[in-house]
Simulated scan of single mutants.
Amino acid sequence: MKSWMSHIYKIPAILQGILNITLVLVGFTLTFFLLKETWYIFSFMFIDSDVGKTDYEFTEQLLVFFLYFEFIALIIQYFKSGFHFPLRYFIYIGITAIIRLIIIDYTNASNTLLWSISIAVLLGALVLANMKVVRRDEH
């Protein structure tokens, strides 16, 4: 019975290892797409800036760049903080995603107002998450 229980206690460590390997692979994939977005931004700015691309498309791609950047920062922070995802990084990602959504689809004023209110709610949550009482990581 004791040998069986000793194997049960190894399961969380095995799952943690699988999670870590998967997050490293996701990090490399996101880095590839971040570099791809960087090339798109560079080519828009310096190579072919007038080939039918609008400023809204450029802004959309720039915000996608920041989303990739924030997800990579989240993965890095996960490993630095001892296998813990800080809540405030998810809030940053949510705010950036909603801003991107507002820029892409701004035709309906009531939706834009609701998304703006949701950004304000996320900012309030960010203030709470950055309080010393709530934070668990060190800077």
Rank of each mutant, 00 (worst) to 15 (best):
M1F: 12
M1S: 14
M1D: 07
K2H: 10
K2P: 00
W4A: 10
W4L: 11
W4E: 12
W4N: 09
M5E: 15
M5S: 07
H7S: 10
Y9F: 12
Y9G: 05
P12W: 01
L15S: 02
L15D: 04
Q16S: 08
G17R: 14
L19M: 11
I21M: 09
V24L: 13
T29K: 10
L30S: 04
F33H: 05
F33M: 08
L34H: 10
L35E: 05
L35M: 10
E37M: 13
W39I: 15
S43Q: 04
S43H: 14
M45F: 07
D48I: 05
D50Q: 13
D50I: 02
V51C: 11
V51S: 15
K53H: 15
K53G: 07
K53Q: 12
T54M: 03
D55M: 10
E57K: 02
E57S: 06
F58T: 00
F58C: 02
T59N: 06
L62D: 00
L62F: 13
L63E: 03
V64N: 01
F65N: 06
F66L: 13
F66T: 03
F66D: 01
L67C: 03
Y68V: 02
Y68C: 07
Y68N: 09
F69M: 13
F69S: 13
E70K: 07
F71I: 01
I72S: 05
I72L: 10
I72F: 03
A73Q: 12
A73G: 10
L74K: 01
L74S: 04
I76K: 14
I76E: 05
I76T: 09
I76V: 15
Q77G: 09
Y78I: 02
Y78T: 06
Y78D: 05
K80A: 03
K80I: 06
S81F: 05
G82E: 08
F85G: 01
L87A: 06
Y89E: 01
I91W: 01
Y92S: 01
I93G: 01
G94H: 02
T96G: 05
A97M: 10
I98F: 03
I98W: 06
I99S: 06
L101N: 08
L101H: 04
L101F: 09
I102W: 00
I103Q: 02
I104L: 00
I104H: 00
I104E: 00
D105A: 07
D105C: 01
Y106K: 04
N108S: 09
A109Y: 13
A109K: 14
A109D: 05
S110V: 12
N111W: 03
L114W: 08
L114H: 09
W115M: 08
W115S: 11
W115K: 14
S116Q: 04
I119E: 03
I119T: 01
V121M: 11
L122A: 12
L122E: 02
L123C: 13
A125Y: 06
L126N: 09
L126W: 09
L128D: 06
V133T: 13
V133I: 11
V134F: 15
V134A: 12
V134T: 10
R135S: 07
R136F: 14
D137T: 11
E138G: 04
E138L: 08
E138P: 02
